[in-house]
Amino acid sequence: MNINLTLIIQMIVFAILVWITMRFLWPMILGPMEERSRKIALGLAAAEKGQQDLAQAERKADAVMQEARERAHQIIEQAQRRANELLEHAKSAASAEGQRLLAAAQQQIELEATQARDSLRRDIAQLAVETAAKLLEREIDARTHADLIEKLVAQI
């Protein structure tokens, strides 16, 4: 239990240890720690920015989607309208064509009926002239009495 040279030796050893720690150990350990926390801070900032970018991209995508939906809606509506128009058009064209065909057929029928009536009249007139000639026992010249026959035909 006394104070001796150990005290001085301990002070010197202590000073050497503190110097080694201060000069080498401390910076060697703290340097990478600070570098790591800087890296982590950068990483966190990048992650935050990434999230913001993602949110922005999502908003943009939503807007684009919305626009596309509206556009699709418009196109479908337009197409339907156009289809309806075409249908209406086709319908009216068809019915007009039908009307036209009907009218032509009726015209044809009427024409044919008129022709038939005319030919019938002519036959009847012929018959009447022949009958009259027989009755008069004399050939009636068809040419000379053509105007008479025409009058007769018109009367029938």
Binding site: I3, L5, I8, Q10, V13
Partner: peptide, 18 residues
């Protein structure tokens, strides 16, 4: 050691473990 303070003495064990 002679006396309370004697700088000619060294505690080898303390120095060694220190």
């Amino acid at each position: 050691p002679r006396g309370l303070v004697d700088f000619s003495v060294v505690n080898y064990d303390s120095v060694f473990f220190s």
